[in-house]
Design a protein around this nucleic acid. Sequence first.
RNA 1: GCCGCUUUAGCUCAGCAGGUAGAGCACCACCGUGGUAAGGUGGGGGUCAGCAGUUCGAAUCUGCUAAACGGCACCA
Length: 644
Amino acid sequence: MVKITLPNSEIKEYQDGVTILEIAKNISPSLAKKAVFATANDIDSPLNKSITQDCNLILHTSDEPKSLDNLRATLSFFLGKAIKKFDQTAVLGDHGFNDGGFFYDSDIATGQISADQLPEITKLVINELNQNNKLVCVRSSIDEAITIFKENSYQVELLKSLKTDYVYINTFEDYKDFSLIPLLTNYQNIKYFKLLFVAGAYFLGKSSNKMFQRISGTAFFSKKELEEDEKKREIARSHDHRVLGQQLDLFFVNPEIGAGLPYWLPKGATIRRIVERYIIDKEVDAGYQHVYTPVLANLNLYKTSGHWAHYREDMFPPMDMGDGELLELRPMNCPSHIAIYKYKPRSYRDLPLRIAELGMMHRYEKSGALSGLQRVREMTLNDGHTFVALEQIQDEFKKVLKLMMEVYRDFDIKDYKFRLSYRDKANTEKYFDDDQMWERSQSMLKGAMDELGLEYYEAEGEAAFYGPKLDVQTKTAMGNEETMSTIQLDFMQPERFKLTYVGADGNDHRPIMIHRGIIGTLERFVSYLIEIYMGAFPTWLAPIQVDIIPVNNDLHQDYVKKIEADLKKEGLRVQADLRNEKMNYKIRESQTQKIPYTIIVGDQEKLSGNVTIRRYGQEKQETLNESSFIELIKSDIANFSRED
RNA sequence: GCCGCUUUAGCUCAGCAGGUAGAGCACCACCGUGGUAAGGUGGGGGUCAGCAGUUCGAAUCUGCUAAACGGCACCA
């Protein structure tokens, strides 16, 4: 007999060799139905596991969010099996679960799997699932697993790349696979899954490796969740800045004019202009000196900076001017600001010296990376470089963070994560070669974050080639992670450009550079704003703040024009809609264009000098006199349309 | 850049079997229009992404190129 201790401290006795599923059934049939896996003496175990010694047992059910991973890992297993059925020659590669669902990578000698074949593969998966209770899942060491899968060199490499000590070996008749977490051995309830797309994926995530065919899908425990997931994807599309950008006439990209080269239409340009004015004012207040520097420079500048050696892949090819001069479109602004630093001898009294610019840069992004305003080939970075003495780093770092938080508050940005981005130790050729400096600057950044008590996560291989970064990661409507803001520590370029300042001791010293982008690039930032506001901009950012509509075009035209002129005088962005259309038509358009305030005026308003307003998204109307309205909208703008 | 998919009017999309193109919205004209989400009638508009091929004949079949989209890789 074995003694099983349950989470409520109750102890039950069972026959030696009892399976976890049997225990679950004994406790309650409904529990057994919902059970996904168990933790037995702190080891995650599948339900088919036999218990041969006393243990603490926790059963995990489908109610727990993390059980979803086990479900998806299980589907990945059956997908792999289905692919093998689909084509005997398939070589199976990476597989498993991720945030959105599950996937299986395979390599089929006879050709690529196409999207049309997904229904066929789906049927095969269903067939496999219908063969009940044949799946056996056993925990084993990596070494054992390597022996079992020795015939598939890809699987062996995968197993070797794992950071865990154990995997689960899953056997279904003569088919074997491994997973990182226990599978559902009572998989007969699995019904709610969907294969979504076929894509390419490099083996082990390295573009130098072979590309496998990835089939991805998603799965849930209930039909409702699966349907909600589908709905969520639809909603995401309605937040997509590319869709809204067209609906609201904000920007366009025309491939015939140039992929990745966006055109800002008047309304999008207005939003951008407001953002630009805002951030420049904010930075000037914070002690930054704004400059303008050229987008072109002699290639030698980027040879000195190290860009040509470490960043060439992302740079446009140099322009050969025919007389030996090579001009380069700049991919970053730092060398330009270094030139400004070098313009004069600098003293310790000048530090921290803060140079800022809305600097236009060009990067030759890979065609597959381009996306609306999020990834472009010409972008304007809200760039700033502070030159500091060593002992000023900490303070300046804090100042930048403080500025960043203020800006986030004004734009109502709440959903982000801090990421400390280090270089990849295993792949140092991408970075400047100076181990000591890397160690030092990485630990300084981490120290500063720890001191501030801010939460962050660490990522190797995400650093700039010249130094580690603190990145602010946000998510796009489509769920991709993007870097918005960044603060970077750079000991390298001051060295390469031999920057100096005269210290209090009269000797030359080397400054350190802090690179920082608060709102990142205007392109990405505005795309982010479009998505979080869903195109319904707060009044201070709205390209058109007020839309004025007469009840009758002829009778009320003069009054509409008077109000328009009054509001314009107050600096408001107003449009008077005097088109030959009915009032209702105009109101509808005002709403679909998401204009914050719609003013409707007729006889009543004209007589009393009032306006009747309707706010975007509300049906309620309110009549007030013109000056009260001006007061109202002005305070709305002044507090960034925040409620608090 | 790689894999998959897509590309028809300004926009959203029909055109499923090769026989020289359609709808709704938008645009233009005329008529109409008084209180909070689309008034009516008529009209203009397309080398069916580009190039080549198969065919008596190609939006439709084949190949190449480009771009968009979903991933992978890369990244602000």
